[in-house]
Amino acid sequence: MENFIYQANPSRVIFGSGTIQKLPEELSRLGLSKPLLLCTPQQTSQAADLEKILGGKVAGTFSRATMHTPVEVTEEALEVLKSTGADSLVAIGGGSTTGLGKALSIRTGLYHICIPTTYAGSEVTPILGETQAGLKKTRSDPKILPGTVIYDVDLTMTLPASLSATSGVNAIAHSVEALYAQNGNPIINLLAQEGVRALAAALPAIVADPSSREARSSALYGAWLCGICLGNAGMSLHHKLCHTLGGTFDLPHAETHTVVLPHALAYNAPKVPRAMKMLADVLPGSDGDAIRGLNLLLDKLGVKRGLKDFGMKEADVDRAAELATSNAYPNPRELEQGPIRELIRRAWAGEHAKADL
């Protein structure tokens, strides 16, 4: 076995059904009593439910969490935070709300409790992506990691099947890149395979029956494991592309990950045979071909396959390729402008991924 380093991130996880009711107990355990609640404009009712659970003992609610964590929204939230005298942050929602909670926590030092309602996985990572002037940049710091994560399967039961699918594939992407990460290790490989296995089985079941509590529980479990992989291993081409495309062209986060993933994997495939085998082993119907397995999964989920479906123009392909190759970053295969451009063009057009880049 090769030498490796593994470091577990110190977050506390509460997993199950009805676990949101443990929020008052968790705040009390931490000696906190005046949280600022965070949510998106679409999830104010869930923030209101939290306020009821806490018996009204909150500093207030900021409901403008926004996709890609724009710095200007964070600055607006900071002003609200200062005016309320909050002693902690409780974020309920998906990646947008989690990102805002992270941005506020790293700026203020306040304890951050995260309550995910999607399969984003960012709640268990020390990574923050922020957008300013049309560019999305990421940074990593142990202080960014939320202190407590409360996974409540009940909160995912009303997540639309289509969003469940793309959110779940976004989570799978974390594990895919962890399998060939420069700083990967055997422990993360095990978590990555188990996370993909759980999600690849659960997501088609959710699309077929969104009310399946068993499938919802498995998907949330898988997303947690994939999030751990994201937080413990360096990401490569896929995540770089998605940050570039999402931040620059204002594309939806989970949907962009879903479209790009099989193409990014196809690009790296020649350099990562071991990772391809590990992935193929846990993707149903792959027949030993991980790209085939991913294409098959996306077909089962019925998701949109083209970035053009989300507003990206064909004229943007060249610029996206330039941005994606402008800065050096770890990737198993050297970045080549021509093949990267073709990768993005295929993703834009909605073509099935092929291992010929």
Rank of each mutant, 00 (worst) to 15 (best):
N3H: 13
S11K: 13
R12H: 10
S17G: 12
G18W: 03
T19A: 06
E26M: 09
L27I: 14
L30I: 13
L30R: 11
P35C: 03
L36F: 01
L37I: 09
P41F: 06
P41W: 08
A47H: 01
A47L: 05
K52S: 05
I53D: 00
L54Q: 04
G55E: 03
G56Y: 06
G60N: 03
T61Q: 09
S63N: 12
A65N: 03
M67L: 12
M67P: 02
V71T: 12
V73D: 03
L78H: 07
V80L: 13
L81D: 05
D87C: 11
D87K: 07
L89P: 08
G93A: 00
G94N: 08
G95S: 10
G95W: 00
G101P: 07
L104Y: 15
S105T: 09
I106L: 07
G109F: 03
G109P: 06
H112N: 15
I113K: 03
C114T: 05
C114H: 01
P116T: 02
G121A: 09
G121P: 03
T125L: 07
G129A: 11
E130L: 05
E130F: 02
Q132F: 13
G134C: 15
G134E: 12
K137L: 14
D141E: 07
D141Q: 05
L145G: 00
P146W: 00
T148M: 07
V149N: 00
D152N: 07
D154R: 05
T156V: 15
T158G: 07
S162H: 06
S164W: 03
G168F: 03
V169R: 04
A171P: 10
H174V: 08
S175I: 05
V176F: 02
L179N: 04
Q182M: 12
N183F: 14
P186R: 04
L190W: 10
E194F: 01
V196T: 04
A198N: 14
A200N: 08
A202M: 11
A202F: 01
A208E: 11
A208P: 01
S212D: 14
A219H: 06
L220G: 00
Y221R: 14
G227F: 10
G231L: 05
H239I: 13
H239Y: 10
K240N: 13
G247D: 11
G247P: 07
V259T: 05
L261V: 04
H263S: 00
H263E: 06
A266M: 10
N268P: 12
A269R: 00
K271C: 15
P273H: 15
A280W: 02
D281E: 15
L283Y: 03
P284G: 01
G285R: 08
S286L: 08
G288H: 14
D289F: 12
A290M: 09
I291F: 01
G293A: 08
N295M: 13
D299Y: 11
D299R: 15
K300L: 15
G302D: 09
G302M: 10
G306W: 02
G306N: 06
K308C: 08
D309Y: 10
F310N: 02
A320Y: 01
A320M: 08
A321L: 07
E322A: 14
L323S: 04
S326L: 11
P332H: 14
R333F: 09
E336N: 12
E336W: 10
Q337K: 15
I340V: 15
E342I: 14
E342P: 02
I344V: 13
R346L: 09
A347M: 03
H352I: 10
A355H: 09
